[in-house]
Design a protein around this nucleic acid. Structure first.
Length: 800
RNA sequence: GCAGGUAUGGCGGAAUUGGCAGACGCGCUAGAUUCAGGUUCUAGUGAGAGCAAUUUCAUGCAGGUUCAAGUCCUGUUACCUGCACCA
């Protein structure tokens, strides 16, 4: 009888849903396990073959945990606000809510066809007012605690989306989403003070189980550096403060550079002789996009300010001040002291403008290149610092500067505050109103959710205003504070808002009183295992850690960190090894795979395809191999004999496989877990029969990967009570994992000469004696120098 | 430039503390089943030499430590990912 996945798979999906086997229990006495995958953006393209990889991986873990007696929460939802939906809506004149509804329905059907054990009772959608009510609520808390503020600032502006982007959304100077040019624009924007949490976001990484590469990226992105701020007097009278990580090289500062946007320039206008030249440079710098700025990174440009000079506070020497776009206004103080002898950029600049290079750390040849080594150098030409190492000098100079009152130790971060407004329609309205008298005033919490109004047109406007701005009925309101006329904020939140806290909503998704009850939060927090893409490391993962830390600080969530453990899956590439894309024509459609081979096969293949954490190319013949496993498993019925025990000849194999499948799954080695199951099936075929008990155990092991066929097998062969999804996970006995006799290798000086079978528990001396016997011929007439016995592995004899 | 990672057959990939390199799968070869194709089953499959037993060479490259190295150490190359004029 051939196995027909098209009948079997829907049948069992229905049974599971009807019995509610995957629903997380409320008020449970069991230990909890919260497994989380990044909820998808329901795009118009439908499910990608990459989606099932992480979903199946945590499904395997979740199914295993349920069998192990845990109360498992494995939820799914939709991260549905965002530009592609809005753009599709504009193009096709369908309301984005309608587009979202259709896309969600399709995604849901596709995901359900995979037999993932999601708890569909807890499905959430970020565009649902009952959901975004709480996104808005969190925004209000951020505002009330001074972490949300509005600011005129230079922002990244996508020329095609006509929308502001966060720094994290600009990739190589172009829009991450549409690839269009990103320019700078001064706009008033809502900002979130993520910088306030910079240090905590670094420190608390020590408490969580994340892959090293994820921690490293976050630390790198936050970019902490230790240094000092130093005040330089100028001939204009006004002080200029610089930030430097190398205060030890202060004696070597031979000029100063300020960013083109530095406010001091305006103040000095009357003193500057070459103002026209400077203004031209400023205009040039402002015009450049980020992309151009980095493009010309190697070629330093700048203008020397004529009429104002700075004074090196330690040497008393007057030094020139330049403006140059290699100094960024947004980092540090927007001004640097330049030490060409010991900084590569300053060195290049000094060479180009023929500025003096003074060596203050001995160890290199500063005429040839900047000497930046902090380990070996010794201070010279540095007054009180002479003879010290760089590290000693840093400590001494900081103290000295503080004593003189002209500087202090300072920590800086590269991380910037999060630009939180978007001039688009399809996002959460920001629950603020602007009153001429009271300024920005938050809505009362009782007013939430502030619903997104229905508009005629979602077209972004050319003047950079949100489409909501045209809805005068909605915009005009009264001030919650004074009752006077006021206008609503018309910008909406970025896509990252809804996903910054969604895991909390899963804990208690239907609660109308709070985003989740204390009971649910206390029971389910934190997420035990969160799998997601590497591309979210400095976006979603960082943002949601920030929000969660804030919520912890105001006492509404019980843990400092949202996710205990994070893992990351690799991408699935096309058969040609390239990223799947329509234009390359190498896209594999998961629906077709489910139709052709079945969900079990697709799941098995995606787990077997290779190292879970690495990218892997799709292989059509590879998936057929996994279908063969399903068929071979199905055909085991023909070898079935009565028996409620594991027969002695299978004991070691079964116990070893139980152990291996369990351990491998916990360590993301799904590929070798499946390989072990394949090997066991091969062994059963070689021996020609399988007892009911053996088949039952095998079925449970396989069921976490290929649940449908296993349920069917269990059911029609009456392998046990109930259904597989409710069986206990098999236990192994360490003692039974060992064979009685083992084959070991006999080596002479490391070369294999023979193989012998010996009892597993043999004493070392006896093993060596047997080994010598086996290679007696070769040993004749030689002196034995060394004998090594590695239990269970080999005997190595060194003889002369 | 900085950070992290990778390198093993024709391909995807295995290899607890250093202990039989290539598990498992794909592909390929031969045979059986079949009218044929597909399916399924059996056997073989890193490279070279040999009729053979056997033997030599093989984990990016070059050294080293060790009875024993894919694994440890030193140096080096290539590629991937992220960040990048952050003072």
């Amino acid at each position: 009888m051939k196995y027909d996945h098209k009948v079997t798979e829907p049948k069992w999906q229905k049974v599971w849903e009807e019995k509610g086997v995957f629903h997380a229990e409320e008020h449970s006495e069991k230990p909890k396990f919260f497994a989380l995958v990044e909820f998808p953006y329901p795009s118009g393209q439908g499910l990608h073959v990459g989606h099932p990889r992480p979903y199946t991986a945590l499904d395997v873990i979740s199914r295993k945990r349920r069998l192990e007696g845990y109360n498992v929460l494995y939820p799914i939802g939709w991260d549905a606000f965002g530009l592609p939906t809005e753009n599709f809506a504009i193009k096709n004149h369908i309301h984005p809510a309608e587009v979202t509804k259709n896309n969600v329905a399709r995604f849901k059907k596709q995901i359900q066809s995979l037999g993932i054990s999601f708890d569909w009772n807890r499905e959430i959608n970020t565009t649902d007012p009952d959901y975004y009510k709480w996104t808005q609520w969190i925004f209000l808390q951020l505002y009330k605690h001074g972490l949300a503020y509005k600011k005129e600032m230079n922002v990244n502006w996508c020329t095609s989306c006509k929308c502001v982007l966060a720094n994290e959304e600009v990739v190589n100077g172009v829009c991450e989403r549409c690839g269009s040019e990103v320019i700078h624009k001064v706009k008033s924007q809502w900002m979130l003070k993520i910088t306030e949490y910079a240090q905590k976001l670094i420190d608390d990484l020590a408490e969580v189980d994340y892959p090293e590469r994820v921690k490293a990226s976050q630390i790198n992105w936050i970019g902490r550096s230790e240094g000092a701020e130093v005040d330089f007097n100028t001939t204009a009278g006004e002080k200029l403060t610089v930030y430097t990580t190398r205060p030890d090289t202060l004696y070597g500062a031979t000029y100063m550079v300020i960013s083109p946007e530095h406010p001091a320039i305006k103040n000095w206008a009357g003193l500057i002789g070459n103002m026209a030249e400077i203004e031209a440079y400023q205009a040039e710098a402002a015009k450049k996009s980020d992309f151009e700025r980095t493009e010309v990174a190697k070629d330093k440009t700048g203008v020397c300010i004529d009429g104002v000079r700075a004074i090196n506070p330690l040497t008393g020497r007057e030094i020139p001040i330049f403006i140059s776009d290699y100094v960024l206004v947004s980092y540090g103080t927007g001004a640097i002291m330049a030490v060409p002898a010991h900084d590569t950029r300053d060195w290049e600049f000094a060479k180009k403008f023929n500025l003096p290079i003074i060596e203050v750390v001995k160890g290199g040849d500063v005429e040839k290149e900047a000497f930046t080594d902090c380990q070996t150098g010794i201070m010279v030409n540095s007054g009180i610092l002479d003879g010290l190492t760089v590290e000693e000098a840093k400590v001494k100079i900081k103290a000295h500067l503080e004593e003189l009152g002209i500087g202090k130790a300072k920590v800086n971060y590269k991380l910037r505050d999060w630009v939180f407004s978007r001039q688009r329609y399809w996002g959460e309205p920001i629950p603020m109103v602007y009153c001429e008298k009271c300024g920005y005033v938050p809505l009362d919490e009782s007013e939430l959710p502030l619903l997104l109004p229905n508009v005629e047109s979602y077209e972004p406007t050319d003047n950079g205003e949100s489409p909501l701005a045209t809805m005068t009925d909605w915009v005009n309101t009264t001030c919650p504070c004074c009752g006077g006329k006021a206008k609503r904020e018309t910008d909406t939140m970025p896509q990252w808002a809804g996903s910054s806290w969604y895991f909390l909503r899963y804990m208690d998704p239907h609660n109308n009183e709070a985003f989740a009850s204390d009971e649910a939060l206390n029971y389910w927090s934190p997420v035990d295992w969160y799998n997601g893409g590497m591309e979210h490391t400095t976006l979603h993962l960082l943002y949601s850690r920030f929000w969660h830390k804030f919520l912890y600080d105001i006492g509404v969530v019980p843990t400092k960190e949202p996710y205990k453990k994070r893992t990351s899956h690799g991408m699935i590439l096309g058969e040609d090894g390239q990223k799947m894309s329509k234009s390359r024509g190498n896209v594999i459609n998961p629906d077709e795979m489910v139709d052709l081979y079945g969900a079990d096969t697709l799941r098995l293949y995606e787990m077997f395809i290779g190292d879970f954490e690495k990218a892997a190319p799709w292989s059509t013949s590879g998936i057929r191999g996994c279908r063969r496993l399903v068929d071979r498993y199905w055909n085991l019925q023909e070898l079935l004999i009565e028996g409620d025990e594991i027969r002695p000849e299978f004991e070691a194999s079964f116990h070893k496989t139980i152990k291996k499948v369990g351990n491998d799954c916990e360590n993301l080695k799904f590929n070798t877990a499946i390989a072990a199951l394949m090997a066991l099936i091969n062994e059963i075929y070689a021996k020609g029969s399988v007892t009911k008990k053996e088949l039952a155990i095998f079925t449970i092991l396989l069921s976490i990967f290929a649940p449908h066929v296993c349920e069917e097998m269990w059911d029609i062969n009456k392998l046990g009570e109930g259904i597989v999804a409710e069986q206990p996970w098999p236990k192994y006995d360490e003692n039974k994992c060992k064979e009685n006799t083992i084959e070991i290798v006999v080596q002479l000086a490391g070369k294999i000469k023979a193989r012998i079978n010996i009892p597993a528990d043999i004493a070392a001396a006896d093993a060596i004696a047997l080994a010598k016997e086996a290679v007696a011929n070769e040993l004749a007439g030689k002196n034995i120098i060394k004998e090594i016995y590695v239990p269970g592995k080999l005997v190595n004899i060194v003889a002369k």
